[in-house]
Computed example of a mutant assay.
Amino acid sequence: MNVVLRTFDISPSVSPSGKKVAVASYQGKKWDGEIKNLNTNIYVMSLENPSQDRERVIENGGWPSWGSEDVIFFHRKDGDGENSCWGVFRHTLSTGETVRVTPAAFDSVTPAAIDETRVAVAAIRQKSEFSDVRVEAQYRHIEVFDMRSPEQPMQITRNTRPKADHFNPFVMDGGKFIGYHRCKSELLQ
């Protein structure tokens, strides 16, 4: 009897050398329709032999982004209930150390690594409800966090479009340029 294990991988990210790929994986589980907390783990595999050189490196993580051959940034939901927030974390493969990069006080998702210490994220500094007339801190903005000065993130979009939501940052030309999606989000009457 042959058993076929299906693997559902999403959000692939190729390492700087081009030799490895990190993915968020359901690893044998099917997608259940969840659109916020996908309950994935992060696996790293070699591109030469992905089916045999596949290793789970992060439990409960998604949206991997390589900072170097040894560093992966990712996001996960942290905490329980109303006090839970999305955060961006940094994982060092050689040591297994994982540290939170973004403050626990607000939601941060979809990391785009610039290098080993800097990462662009989409952040919401203050929670809101659908009925709220939102203030600037309640919009999703792109910020760059640097592990060397974590208290001073560089706010990219709050200065240009304070009342628009910004999503999915991406890095170009070694971090000289940060791209993103933007949409205007108004309360519908």
Rank of each mutant, 00 (worst) to 15 (best):
I42R: 04
V44R: 03
V44Y: 03
V44H: 02
M45S: 09
N49A: 07
N49K: 07
N49I: 01
P50R: 09
Q52K: 15
Q52G: 14
R54S: 07
V57L: 08
V57A: 03
V57W: 04
E59I: 05
E59S: 12
E59K: 15
P64F: 00
P64Y: 00
W66F: 11
S68G: 04
D70H: 04
D70S: 06
D70Y: 03
V71N: 06
V71P: 05
I72A: 03
F74R: 06
H75S: 07
K77G: 04
K77I: 14
D78W: 10
G79N: 05
D80E: 13
D80H: 10
G81S: 14
E82D: 15
N83I: 03
S84I: 04
S84M: 01
C85T: 12
W86R: 04
G87E: 05
V88K: 11
F89V: 07
F89N: 10
F89D: 06
R90C: 02
R90P: 12
H91D: 12
T92S: 14
S94K: 13
S94D: 03
T95N: 06
E97P: 10
T98I: 11
V101L: 05
T102D: 01
T102G: 02
P103V: 00
P103W: 00
A104L: 13
D107M: 00
D107Q: 04
S108E: 01
T110D: 09
P111C: 03
I114D: 01
E116C: 04
T117H: 03
R118L: 00
R118D: 02
V119S: 04
V121A: 01
A122E: 15
A123T: 07
K127M: 12
E129G: 12
F130E: 13
F130Y: 12
F130Q: 13
S131W: 14
V133I: 14
R134N: 10
Y139D: 04
Y139T: 07
H141P: 06
V144D: 05
V144A: 01
F145H: 06
F145L: 05
M147Y: 10
M147N: 07
S149D: 15
P150S: 09
E151P: 12
E151H: 13
E151V: 11
Q152H: 15
M154Q: 14
M154C: 08
R158H: 09
N159P: 14
T160E: 06
